[in-house]
Design a protein around this nucleic acid. Structure first.
Lengths: 132, 132
DNA sequence: AGCAACCTTTACGTTAACGTAAACTTCCTA
DNA sequence: TAGGAAGTTTACGTTAACGTAAAGGTTGCT
């Protein structure tokens, strides 16, 4: 199997260009504990895992997650290393997030409907203006 | 027709209790031009329209809208009073919002799937822990 | 050697959306 | 009539998520 893998090493500016964010942001995410690139000397080296994380961070942002919340979610992926006692509180957190998101789904659908109405409204107004 | 209408006058604390926010927030929204209750003397009196607006503000927040953005959306409802020239820019704004929200829908569905996976994961880990 | 393009750390500045406190008025009631 | 509850304005404080310098190291031309 000759699996063509994408380059697994990125500089900070590689990522900043690819995701269209500043290097300042990327370093800040590291500062907040969401990324931990390796180093070559002083210089940060990002791998595929870092890149995926960055993508998840940005998606979280689009959903209104704070960086801290996204950090929590990252931790959840290490469930194996967690005690049974904590598992229940983790699942509670998951369920909270799920109901948040379900609420958001409803919200979005409602707003989309309204926006479509508004658009129709605009178009009709345009037509009546043109026919004068 | 005896239409039973809900009381159409609210105090600031009525609304703060109903929506579980502080009066500070409500006054702040007014300060930002999103609400404009009438006054009896000094005291703010809110009507049904104000209440609806407040609900919309909070829904906007859940969707990650800034107060300014929500304000823009409020203005959109006065389309009638707008010139044909502005209508196109309004529709552009609407379409931007629509694509934002569509993106969010995708994001949410993705995260919901992941959260469900995580939950399964947790439950399985719990089971294996219990069977030891 | 020089300098341009990167990278780094450190640190102060900025914006949105309130929190919090002070000082005051108005109304109700024990 | 004294107090308490709810309202008001004014204004400074706070947090998250960066922006924006400043000052300096490292690499690679030319």
């Amino acid at each position: 199997m000759t699996s063509k893998t994408s380059p697994t090493k990125y500089s900070i500016s590689d990522l900043s260009k690819e995701f269209d964010i500043t290097t300042r942001s990327i370093r800040f995410y590291e500062d907040q504990g969401l990324l931990s690139p390796s180093r070559k000397g002083q210089t940060r080296i990002y791998n595929q895992r870092d890149k995926v994380r960055l993508k998840l961070i940005l998606r979280g942002k689009r959903l209104g997650f704070s960086l801290a919340e996204t950090g929590r979610l990252f931790e959840l992926y290490d469930v194996d290393k967690t005690s049974a006692k904590q598992l229940n509180s983790i699942m509670e957190l998951i369920n909270n997030k799920k109901s948040d998101l379900t609420q958001q789904l409803d919200d979005i659908n409602a707003v989309l409907i309204e926006l479509n109405d508004l658009e129709d409204n605009c178009q009709e107004t345009l037509r009546t203006l043109e026919s004068k």
